[in-house]
């Protein structure tokens, strides 16, 4: 396997763990974003941390989006005092529709798989105006377009 294959595999495994932690049966684009923020040593990670978007900050932004979206229909998360359900550590979530779209967009953003780098994966997750990721970033005051521009910039002078 090439370096990018290993990276994508790591992102899908880490994203799956994030999905499981959240109680989601599928790995979605926002779980991939959490994984990109958690795996160090890439331009994608550096772009995020330069904007103070560490894994924890992104998790908090996603939680705010969840509460905000529930609030739009009059549901308050504070009314639910849910005990933490047990998880099956062996059950790995499958890649969900938004996770799949993010990877397809990452592939579309590069010239070919040989050219693909972690920043392309970040671009794949960010390159949409629809869904949880852009909503969570907007609610936290993050300029998604500027973030994408910085990710693209790294591709011109950073090899990984």
């Amino acid at each position: 396997m090439s370096r990018i294959d290993h990276y994508i595999n790591d992102i899908i495994i880490r994203g799956g763990a994030e999905a499981q932690e959240e109680g989601s049966a599928t790995t979605e684009a926002h779980h991939l974003l959490l994984a990109i923020a958690a795996i160090e040593g890439t331009a994608a990670h550096r772009v995020l941390t330069a904007e103070d978007l560490g894994r924890q900050t992104i998790r908090e932004a996603l939680d705010r989006e969840f509460e905000h979206s529930l609030g739009a229909v009059g549901v308050s998360l504070a009314s639910f005092d849910l005990p933490r359900p047990s998880r099956d550590p062996k059950a790995l979530p499958k890649l969900g529709a938004s996770g799949r779209l993010a990877i397809e967009r990452a592939i579309a953003a590069c010239k070919g798989k040989k050219d693909m780098r972690p920043a392309h994966l970040l671009l794949g997750v960010l390159d949409t105006e629809i869904g949880t990721v852009p909503r969570a970033l907007a609610l936290s005051g993050v300029d998604r377009i500027a973030l994408m521009a910085r990710a693209r910039e790294t591709l011109t002078h950073e090899s990984w």
Partner: peptide, 20 residues
């Protein structure tokens, strides 16, 4: 967009509630 995101959030909350 808000109405659709509310559907996603309610499904997630229902799943969490069911598990618990």
């Amino acid at each position: 967009a808000d109405a659709l995101a509310a559907v996603v959030a309610l499904r997630r909350l229902a799943d969490q509630l069911e598990d618990a």
